Simulated assay, not measured.
Amino acid sequence: MSTLQNKIDFVALISVNMANANGDPINGNRPRTDYNNYGEISDVCIKRKIRNRMQDQGYPIFVQSEDRCDDGLGSLSERASTTLKGIKNREEYTKKACETWLDVRAFGQVFAFKSKDSVSAGVRGPVSIHQAVSISPVDVQTLQITKSVNGDPGEKRSSDTMGNKHFVQFGLYLLKGSINVQLAEKTGFTEEDAQVVKECLRTLFVNDASAARPDGSMEVVKLFWWQHNCKDGQYSSAKVHRSVKVTLKDSDQIPSSVDDYAITVEALPGLEPEVIDGL
């Protein structure tokens, strides 16, 4: 399989309904917002979901979450040592890592572990993901909840034992990203790998349900995918990303669904996006 030859840019529109899109652990796990109340989903969160979808499709993943570990190895150091043991040359080490794990090929990875047989090395990946930001300010709601059962024998249950559950009433988030050909050549990232990333973005929230994100509460509405006709791109990534225009149909209205927005794509001569419905 040949490495990626043409630059790729993409934009995804993500709707959030009565869900905590990405909780902030230093703020009581409230949905992330900036100082102007625009919702945010971190790039790390998005990459985690993409990795999970890669795993669901049967691809070997280096950075596995604990609840999705499929090789019995409990740490990144163990995973690296098991596969890369005995390789002392840095270039051979990173080449083997890229050949083995799709997420290393895509996102890159820093290998810096304490084990004796590890090699300190870094891989820059071709797939870059921005944090997703909501088009309009979001309304964060908080529900107080009480315990209905005892946690330990002899514990006295009382109705004043309470917790909080936070969620975004509604938000439409815009996610941007790109795939760089020069870095793809270094990691061996292929056109087939790019198609896997596209499918992962289209199905980003499959098998991602939780108490904070019930099934159906988060959805990829549209995925815009531009494949340029050259390595460096016919237009800058910034210009391509800006070509997606999302505006409120009624500027005085508080949005409550995707239908409240007008979504258009500014024409870029010679570069047409593939427009894909999310799952």
Results as ranks from 00 to 15, higher is better:
Gln64Pro: 01
Phe62Met: 01
Leu73Lys: 13
Gly58Ile: 00
Lys49Ala: 10
Glu40Gln: 09
Ile61Pro: 07
Ser42Lys: 09
Val63Trp: 03
Arg53Glu: 06
Arg48Glu: 06
Gln57Trp: 15
Arg53His: 03
Ile50Cys: 01
Pro60Tyr: 06
Tyr38Pro: 03
Tyr59His: 14
Ile61Gln: 10
Lys47Ile: 01
Val63Met: 08
Asp71Trp: 08
Asp70Ala: 10
Ile41Val: 01
Ile61Asn: 08
Gln55Thr: 10
Ile61Trp: 12
Asp43Thr: 07
Tyr38Asn: 13
Lys47Ser: 03
Tyr59Asn: 11
Pro60Trp: 05
Lys47Pro: 04
Arg48Gly: 04
Ile41Thr: 05
Cys45Arg: 15
Asp56Lys: 12
Glu40Val: 02
Asp70Ile: 10
Gly39Asp: 12
Asp70Asn: 15
Arg51Tyr: 06
Pro60Ala: 06
Ser42Ala: 00
Tyr59Ala: 08
Ile41Met: 00
Ile46His: 02
Ile61Leu: 12
Met54Arg: 00
Leu73Met: 14
Val44Leu: 08
Asp56Cys: 02
Ile61Cys: 07
Gly74Glu: 06
Ser65Met: 13
Tyr38Leu: 02
Gly74Cys: 04
Ser65Glu: 14
Cys45Lys: 13
Gly72Cys: 06
Gly74Thr: 02
Tyr59Gln: 13
Gly39Cys: 08
Phe62Arg: 01
Cys69Ser: 14
Asp67Gln: 13
Ile50Pro: 00
Asn52Ser: 14
Asn52Ala: 11
Tyr38Phe: 15
Gln64His: 00
Ile46Gly: 03
Ser65His: 11
Gly72Ile: 06
Asp67Val: 11
